[in-house]
Simulated scan of single mutants.
Amino acid sequence: MKAATLLAFGSPLSIGAVPDPVPGTGEVVVDVVATGVLPYTADVFSGARRYPLELPVVPGCGAVGRVRTTGPDATRLSPGDWVFCDPTVRSRDGGLAPDITLQGWSSRGEGGLRLQKYFHNGPFAERMMVPTENAIPLGVIDEADAGRWCAAGVALVPYGGLLATGLQAGETLLVSGATGNYGSAAVATALAMGAGCVVAPGRNERTLADLVRRFGSRVRPVTLAGNEDADRARMQAAASGPIDCVLDILPPSVSATVVRAAVMAVRPFGRAVLMGGVGMLGGDDLSLPYPWIMRNCVSIQGQWMFEPSAVFGIIALVRAGLLDLGQFEVSEFALDNANEAVAHAAAHAGSFRITVIRP
């Protein structure tokens, strides 16, 4: 089969033939119809993101496709079924703390690296093998819409964080990083879940205005000025009442003071979930005052990616018409043009844009 392979960090993808995957027990081979190219893909391939990724590898992070073959223990999936390939692979012997690898993308810890050696190659290929539980049925879709369904994978990441916040209908949420690719998807997803008000801080006034245009008065934009205390006060003033929970999804390039300004805007007994990349590439770590956390009974949680059930939830939100994937502008490339797709994703990063490879 044909695939795009990353042979070395800093080198372009090599397009050529690789062996076909062969499924065993607990595995499924999927014909990849569309796979999203994340805006920071070029930084991963250059090595700038320092992701633990063993090379050579067929990269990528999640896909939409059709089942080709299944292992002997599959009881529901059949060849031809449309599925979403969840990239978050968990060790089956991990019990309460499974090791995790993002297939074709990254991993966590020594156990995640071991898992990556087996579930190694990602979706920049005509076919990929995934654990049976990672092939999530989509139901019937139009093949022409497969690229747009990749946008569900963008919304799925912040959805995992929103589930971790315990967001309830009618609550006020603050999305730290609301003008980014994942952050803007977080705003859309939170509103689909019934958030009464979403405070959206950011520096890009054009994107903030676009969020209001798309979603109306339930979005409360806040232009950040760079002063931590003043920015926090503006976020709190923009809300319709106390801020119940905060989701931080800022990238590694942002200062930790921006995160702290947002997190400390939450009300007493509020919740904050951290799932961005701040501090991953050096710089100051997030410093939160112990007395403030303790005396205000604030809950702070880390969340990497999402729980397995979240995939079913995001599909249900789309099927119900609550989350509109039509909000996303989709740009598609053939597998032979994978390097052009990576460059396009970097040059056209931003809210409600997705670059897709269609093998």
Rank of each mutant, 00 (worst) to 15 (best):
T172R: 12
A200Y: 04
G177T: 08
S107V: 02
N204V: 06
S217L: 06
R92E: 12
L96R: 13
L113I: 05
G166W: 10
A97P: 00
A135M: 07
A155F: 02
A164E: 14
L224H: 02
W105H: 14
G170N: 09
L102A: 10
C150L: 09
A146E: 04
M129P: 01
I100H: 01
N134Q: 04
E205A: 14
G160T: 09
G161K: 13
R90S: 12
I100C: 02
A186G: 13
L162E: 03
A169L: 02
G153R: 03
V219G: 01
V187P: 07
M129Q: 12
F215W: 15
S217M: 08
E228M: 14
T101C: 15
T189W: 12
S106I: 00
Q116R: 06
S184A: 15
D145E: 15
V175F: 07
A185M: 02
L167E: 02
P123V: 08
A209I: 00
V157S: 07
A190I: 05
K117R: 15
K117N: 10
L102N: 02
I100G: 04
R108K: 08
R203K: 14
V175S: 03
D93W: 01
Q103T: 07
D229A: 15
G94E: 05
A188R: 04
R206D: 09
A151I: 02
Q168R: 15
Q103M: 14
L115N: 09
R127S: 14
M193W: 01
P158W: 09
L173Y: 05
S176F: 07
C197E: 12
L156T: 05
N227E: 15
L167S: 11
A155P: 09
N204F: 04
L96D: 15
G111T: 09
I136Y: 01
A225D: 12
G153H: 05
F124E: 04
V222G: 07
C150R: 04
G180Y: 07
V219C: 12
R203W: 07
T223G: 02
V157R: 02
W105K: 02
R203C: 00
T88P: 00
K117I: 00
M128L: 15
P137C: 04
G94Y: 04
R108C: 09
D99K: 10
G95S: 05
P221D: 08
T88N: 13
D93P: 00
L174G: 08
A186F: 10
G183A: 12
R114F: 01
L208Q: 05
G194C: 11
G147Y: 11
G94P: 07
A230W: 05
G160S: 10
A146C: 11
Y159T: 03
M128P: 03
P158H: 11
F119G: 05
S176T: 06
V154P: 08
N134H: 07
V154E: 11
E205G: 14
R90L: 15
G139T: 03
S217Y: 06
A230M: 05
H120L: 02
L191S: 09
A144V: 09
T165M: 06
A144I: 04
W149A: 04
A209H: 01
R206K: 14
A230F: 02
P98Q: 09
